[in-house]
Structures are given as C-alpha cells and as structure tokens.
Design a protein around this nucleic acid. Structure first.
Lengths: 114, 114
DNA sequence: CTCGTACTTATCTAATCAGTTAATTATCCA
DNA sequence: TGGATAATTAACTGATTAGATAAGTACGAG
C-alpha cells in the first residue's frame, strides 16, 4: 500500500484522530492515551501500531513506559496532497466573489423593501 | 460513521484519489473515468459510490451518461481538520529557524575547511 | 420497438480490520 | 528474587471492503 493511502487509512478512525489530538498537546504514555476510551488496552496498542506504521507517531522507551509522540511529517504530506485541490475551492470562491462584486456594481433591480 | 472518518476512508485508496485528480480537471462520464484503470466498470461504479457517499463528488444525469463532478466541501473539511495540526510543524520549523539564526549569530566554531 | 451504449445492482470471494480475552515480555522496586 | 506495573503479542470473531462476473435498468437512435 502506498504511503498516502496508509496515512488516510490511519486517519479514518475517530479513536486514532482523538489520540493524535491528545498527542498534539505533548508526548504521553499508552495507558494515559487509553484512559478516555472504552476500549481495551490491546485495542489501543493496535491503534498505536497503525498510527506508527503510517508515520503519524513515533514511540520511544522510558523504563516500562512507551511514550508516544506525534510526527508531523505524515500530516504534512496530507497537506501537500490537499494543495492540488485548494485551487478548486479558491476558484469557486473567486467566482462567487466576482458574482457578488458584479451584483453590487450594477444591480439589475434596485433593492426595494425585503 | 462520522463524516470525517468517511471522508478519510474514501481518500485511503489510490484509485479513488486518481479519480478525484481527474475530476479536478472537470466533469466527466463514468466510462471515461474508468478508462485509465485495470478495474471492471462495476468496480469503478463502487468507487464512485464511496466518493459520493463521502460527499467528495456529486453525480447528475445527461441522457445515458452520469457525469461526475468533484465537490470541494468535503476536502475543505479535511483542510479545516488539518488546521489544528499546522501549528505543530510550524512550531518545529520555527524552532529550527531559531536554531539556524542562533547558529549564524554566534558560531561556536568558525567554519574552517569542510 | 428493438438494438447498442452507459451504467448499476446482485451475488460471491478473499482479505483486511476493529474489537475482544488470555498469555507473554520488560522494567522497576522492595 | 518475586511481585507489581506497563505494554505487547497471539488467537479468535464479526463486520467491512475491493475486486470479480452476471444480470438488469435507462436512454437515444434508427
């Protein structure tokens, strides 16, 4: 599977995105990451493996803890992918802007009540 | 399933992303979309259904053709989601920038050869 | 009113996935 | 050394998915 597909796949799960959101605040342990969820620890462990495999996090070791850290690179590649499409909604917005400007410049019907 | 998960799920496939890339150039028919792929037409039809369900495309009807059009809204929501994390890599970049500036301001060792 | 074109729906299969419990590994501390 | 704590691996289950083929629907042209 290609890298971008793996990344999107990893992001396609609310638990994993919540884990990322937590990790955006700073490095933390697996147990602490698991706390907010009604999911067994092995379940969380699996999610972390998916995130790690996608390059979204890295894991180190501190005694018996395995602190997780968010890894921006994979998210940056999503951002880069999106870049191709941003023109799309900017274009639409521009057209809307033009339309609104045109509307203001020469209104076909002067706004009367309502 | 929540909207964002559905969107990411839909994007987690290279065929579907290629279809989106094609649609970014403009509306087109299913057969034309299918042409570049070694996948049966029903297979493509399924992919389109996934994209449509994720709000990434819309489909209309023109005689026996079902032209597909890219729908920026869903991509915008990905962009919005990413926004929370952009600070992350900007922060890291800033730190790097600071480091580089500091390095340039007061170099601990004047660069001699190499 | 059939024929061809464009596409979808139905059904099946093999693979992957999210979740579970039970067992295992690794490290610290007394 | 022998717990206690932190986390992983193993093995299983039910659900979903990407792909296929075969059959069906919708429309226009002649």
């Amino acid at each position: 599977m290609d890298a971008l597909s793996t990344t999107f796949q990893a992001l396609a799960d609310p638990t994993r995105r919540a884990i990322l959101a937590r990790l955006a605040l700073g490095e933390t342990s697996v147990t602490e990451l698991a706390a907010p969820f009604a999911i067994s620890l092995p379940g969380i462990s699996k999610h972390l493996k998916v995130l790690e495999h996608a390059g979204l996090i890295t894991r180190s070791r501190d005694a018996q803890w395995r602190p997780c850290r968010i890894e921006p690179k994979a998210l940056m590649s999503v951002d880069t992918w999106l870049e191709e499409y941003r023109a799309l909604w900017n274009a639409r917005f521009d057209r809307l802007e033009d339309y609104l400007k045109a509307l203001q410049a020469r209104p076909k019907s002067r706004r009367r009540r309502k």
